Structure formats: C-alpha cells, structure tokens
Amino acid sequence: MLRPKIPANPTPTGAVVPLPTTPTAVDHHQPTAAPMEVPASSRPTVQLTPGSVLALVGGGTAVVLVVGTVLVSMLLAVAVTAASIAVCALVIRSLITSQHRR
C-alpha cells in the first residue's frame, strides 16, 4: 500500500542493493498447526486500590509542584541577576560619562 521510494544511488560505494520489486501474485496460506498457548506470567498482577490511586495522584501532584517551584525560582534568579547587571551597567556608564565632562 504505502511503500517508501528508495532512491537509487548513481555511484554505489559498497554493496549494491537491488531495488524492491512489487509482487505479482499474493498467496495466502492458512496455518496448519494450532497456535501455541502462551504460558502464564509468574509475576503477580498489580492491583490498584482506591487508596493507592489517591497516593499516586498525590505523589504526582507533589512532584509537579516541586519541579514547578524549582523552575520558577531558577527563572527568578536569572531575572534578578539580569536586573542587577543592568543597574551596574547604568552606574558604570554614568560614571564614565561624568568623568569625560570634567
């Protein structure tokens, strides 16, 4: 149905792979052997009680809040640093221009 078109390399650099050809006839075979039974897993299944679901939701909420707090504090630290650098730049500029006037 949807097959990707593989471009032919005009100068092969190794083993030459022939282009795929479309099949002319499709032969459907029926399986002769019965399907094998899948063995049961030895691991116990996880059963969630309403209390454990609430604990998981509470834990996930706590993780999201902590990560959000950390990211916001980092952003605030960057903003404060940028503001202080801007103030320092203005003070230095003012000192340099006042020195040139004298």
Rank of each mutant, 00 (worst) to 15 (best):
M1V: 00
M1S: 02
I6L: 15
I6D: 04
N9A: 06
T11A: 14
T11I: 11
T11H: 13
P12L: 08
T13A: 15
V16M: 06
V16L: 13
V17M: 12
P18T: 05
P18I: 07
L19D: 13
T21M: 06
T22G: 02
P23C: 03
T24A: 09
A25Y: 10
A25H: 11
A25P: 00
V26I: 10
V26S: 01
V26N: 01
D27G: 03
H28G: 04
H29K: 14
P31W: 14
P31Y: 12
A33M: 13
A33D: 10
P35W: 13
M36F: 05
M36I: 12
M36D: 11
E37S: 13
P39T: 05
A40E: 12
A40Y: 03
S41F: 02
S41Q: 05
S42E: 08
R43V: 04
P44I: 05
T45E: 06
V46F: 08
Q47S: 13
Q47F: 06
L48C: 03
L48R: 02
L48N: 02
L48D: 02
T49H: 04
S52V: 10
V53T: 06
V53F: 09
L54M: 09
L56F: 08
L56T: 01
V57F: 08
G58P: 01
G58I: 02
G59D: 09
A62N: 07
A62M: 11
A62E: 09
A62T: 10
V63S: 02
V63L: 09
V64T: 11
G68A: 06
G68C: 07
T69Q: 08
V70P: 00
S73T: 10
L75T: 02
L76Q: 05
L76F: 01
A77I: 01
A77M: 01
A79I: 00
V80L: 05
V80F: 01
V80I: 03
T81V: 02
A82F: 01
A86Y: 02
V87L: 05
V87R: 04
A89K: 00
A89M: 03
V91T: 10
V91E: 07
V91H: 02
I92W: 06
I92S: 10
R93N: 09
S94G: 12
L95C: 12
I96C: 10
I96K: 14
Q99N: 14
R102Q: 15
R102A: 15
R102L: 15
R102T: 12
